[in-house]
Amino acid sequence: MAEAVLDVRDLAVEIDGRNVVDGVSLEVGRSEVVALVGESGCGKSMIAFAVMGLLPAVARVDRGQILLGGEDLVQIGEEAMRQVRGDRLAMIFQEPVSSLNPLMKVGEQVAESLVVHRAVTRQEAWGKAVEMLRKVGIPEPERRAGQLPAELSGGMCQRVMIASALISRPRLLIADEPTTALDVTIQAQILNLMKELRGFGDTAILIITHDMGVVADIADRVCVMYGGRIVEAAGVGETFARPSHPYTRLLLGTIPKLTGERKHLLRSIEGTVPDIAEWPSGCRFRTRCPLADEVCAETPPFLPIPGDPGHHSACWHLDKVGEIA
């Protein structure tokens, strides 16, 4: 991979003395789409907020680096961070309606980052915003630009969010569950749009999701998280064809399919997604893992999978993962 746009190294985020993100390293290359996958409380959104410099007040970066084009965002301070956000770095959220300013015309919201970060007049910016709205598939963009978010549907609002995120041609777009709140036919439209727009200004995408279908549709590479750590990272094909961590393997097995056998008992993962206060020492998945034994009380290293460059898994029992039926 060419030089990474985003290079996160050994990131830890702390809340109340506990590391909700615990030593995460990941890279996103130019025009690449990387999916960060996991269940609620695994820390995936916290990584996004750390990268954006938008951690909630109770959280702080405990250690590690967040390099955007070589510059460490952890160190640059809030003033410099404001220059980066909305310009080189943009984010879209799950709830498009509540993420937009309800009192501001959508055209102005799309134009805002140009007005703030680039030396353009409001008029110029408005023209560019209308063009951007057209590009993201808003019908009659001239008229729509003058409307308020409440006059648009949820799908339309997500298009507006994408337009306002991409108008400055950021190096990296972070998309946190961008289609989770949308209906499937609208989700398909938005995923298609994101695929069309990828490479627009070479923007790289870090998409955060729990939906394996979305991952299969859009991602180039996948990082699977559990308990604040990345437990497996691989190309999207390998992730599905040769899952090499017990959690990934079991998770893929629990999803009902649109083809093949029906009505059989689905594979399930024992127990519940543990609360951070209950995360065990060593491998965090060991309390639910069928392969767990005493060695798992030590934290497993992130080991390369032989014969597949770029594929890593953090499991002491790599040789036995394939036996999980």
Binding site: S153, G155, T185, Q189, N192, V215, A216, D217, G237, F240
Partner: peptide
Amino acid sequence: EALLAAIPLPDPKEQRRRKAIVLEGEL
């Protein structure tokens, strides 16, 4: 048909081979 085609399949090979029927517009 469109509803079924809109669900992304949890299988990258299958999913990328599929013919997309993307519905225009909204409800």
